[in-house]
């Protein structure tokens, strides 16, 4: 299994995530930018992501919801800022309602995702930046809840594919 590297940069209110995938850049890029594919992995299990609309271009956005095991629905959107095809994209992440109206009570984050080819696959870097320490903390609070939701991770499934 590939190792995920997490780095906290509290001074700059950033969290960095680095991960290698055993697939070519073109394929990995597609899984991050195609709504049908995003729906298949984006929501941490047992949640499921469902796309309402996707317009992957600068100024466009991805509007989706995450459906929980009890049927609870959380709407979110990702507004694309800069896109460099097969290299990187940046976007503003926010909670919203079904109509896409942004919920300002929850902190949003700014994402920069970059892709680079390695000898055996693709390295993906995700830099998440927050506006303030308070927003970062609010994210942590929410993350704590999500942590509970993910008590049953899909490790078993992963092991099956590795055997």
């Amino acid at each position: 299994m590939n190792k995920t590297v997490f780095t906290k940069d509290l001074t700059n209110k950033k969290i960095l995530v680095e991960r290698h995938f055993d697939a070519p850049v073109a394929l990995v890029w597609k899984t991050w930018t195609d709504a049908t594919l995003l729906d298949q992995w984006w929501a941490p299990s047992p949640w499921k992501a469902k796309t309402k609309s996707m317009n992957f271009k600068e100024g466009g956005y991805w509007h989706y919801c995450m459906v929980g095991p009890e049927g609870e629905v959380a709407w979110a959107r990702l507004d694309y800022d800069k896109i460099r095809v097969l290299i990187s994209y940046s976007a503003k992440d926010a909670f919203c309602d079904e109509a896409g109206k942004i919920n300002k009570d929850f902190p949003g984050a700014y994402w920069e995702v970059s892709f680079s080819a390695t000898g055996t696959g693709t390295k993906v870097n995700v830099v998440t930046s927050y506006n303030s320490v308070e927003e970062l903390e609010a994210m942590v609070n929410m993350g704590f809840q999500e942590g509970f939701a993910m008590a049953h991770d899909n490790l078993d499934e992963l092991i099956k594919t590795l055997v």
Binding site: D22, Q40, W41, A43, S45, V126, L158
Partner: peptide, 16 residues
């Protein structure tokens, strides 16, 4: 929790 969320996502992405 943040780590768990990403690990979980990435495992799913590996499968995909």
């Amino acid at each position: 929790p943040f780590r768990k969320m990403w690990e979980n996502r990435f495992n799913q992405l590996d499968n995909l």
